[in-house]
Write a protein that binds this DNA or RNA. Structure first.
Lengths: 217, 217
DNA sequence: AGGCGTCTCGAACGTTCGTTCGACAAATGT
DNA sequence: ACATTTGTCGAACGAACGTTCGAGACGCCT
């Protein structure tokens, strides 16, 4: 009498566990390089048992990408509510993106790295979310650009370069060593808006020290 | 008597053809997703015949990554000769990178996308070149940063963000539609140094057209 | 002519792949 | 009590995988 909706709640949690674990396997070995047996081993679910939760391997990847991307986009929409100042909206875009990147590195790596791995039943759906996400970012940028833009800056290139900075982080960011989400967001937003050079009109001939920390990795 | 070096010159050209074609296949299907039979079909060389030119599939990927990366690094070193002004050196770094990206999209995609696909006999060698390349970029950046840096900018993050902007281009750049190498380089360098906002001290409500501040370029 | 590297390939090797099948236990509905 | 749904799995399927082998064709030296 209490349960009017016949959703098997036990199963939903297990699906989430499979999605999380499969993301880790895909992140490590790549989609094509990871086998169903790898995922079976990592999740503890038998090889045949996996197919109760999705139709095939591609569908599993689609489930990961779709839920991840949908969450990121919806989370951003929530954060943007009631915020109308363009610079703050940009900051929230970057913060939302980076925060999810650092808290769910496997899912985000699969999302970034396995963009083209999906066939056309599933691929188009993920592409649709990506287009909405890009359009939202483009809107935010355009409202910033409305107050003036540096010369030689194409809006499309600017936005895609911003995504380049953000999406590249999964290749180098080491938790505990590199800055956390807040600091990384401030750095990227600052770089995007003002560049690395100080904004003062006369930057030449300043002999400051302290930029010798070598960390090639 | 004339030939002291027993290099089979006929074979070298064919190896290059295999490397070029295999790059295309790897770029389209990914390293793990591409089969030796795919490469055999694309190159016109029989399946067994391929193994005359390399030991195994990983070695083939290594050959592609090593020659590509070595060429890019050496090409940059050549361009940097005799140029000592830090901003111009930065511009040459970006130009060299972007030019090769747009003229050899397959090879560069394989280089960027298949970073971790190489096992440890080969993987370490490519990593070594990458470290040298990063160190060179870091040097260039540090000499620019010596004249002052915007607040909240970590050198490591700045350089890696620059690589993020550059390496992300293969995901979106469409030849003929998007700007060519020269224009793209100018956009990225401008964004990296000064950001997207106009550099004047009063960014709000300025209806000026071009910039007039003393900026030698 | 004959021997020898260089180059090429069809055919096959053993392994691993994604996916399916049928059986079965436990919960659920009636 | 029984029928049905939900969840799980061992075993097997054919296909595709990376790699090897032995044989043969070609050009070059003596």
């Amino acid at each position: 009498m209490v349960s009017s909706i016949p959703i098997p709640r036990d199963s939903e949690a297990k699906l989430q566990h499979i999605l999380r674990t499969a993301s880790q396997v895909f992140a490590q070995r790549g989609f094509a390089g990871a086998s169903m047996r790898d995922i079976s081993r990592a999740t503890g679910v038998s090889l045949a048992g996996l197919y109760y939760y999705f139709e095939n391997k591609q569908h599993l990847l689609y489930l990961i990408q779709n839920t991840t991307f949908t969450f990121v986009l919806e989370s951003l929409r929530l954060r943007l509510r009631g915020v109308h100042e363009p610079p703050e909206r940009l900051r929230l875009l970057v913060l939302n993106h980076i925060e999810y990147f650092l808290s769910h590195p496997n899912e985000m790596k699969v999302l970034s790295h396995e963009e083209d791995a999906l066939g056309d039943p599933y691929g188009e759906k993920v592409q649709a979310i990506k287009r909405r996400y890009y359009a939202l970012a483009r809107e935010i940028f355009d409202s910033i650009a409305a107050e003036g833009l540096a010369p030689q800056i194409h809006p499309r290139i600017a936005v895609l370069s911003l995504f380049g900075m953000m999406n590249w982080t999964y290749k180098w960011h080491k938790p505990g060593v590199d800055p956390d989400a807040a600091e990384l967001t401030a750095a990227i937003v600052g770089l995007f808006l003002h560049g690395v050079l100080p904004s003062g009109p006369e930057p030449k001939h300043m002999f400051r020290e302290g930029i010798t920390a070598g960390d090639p990795r």
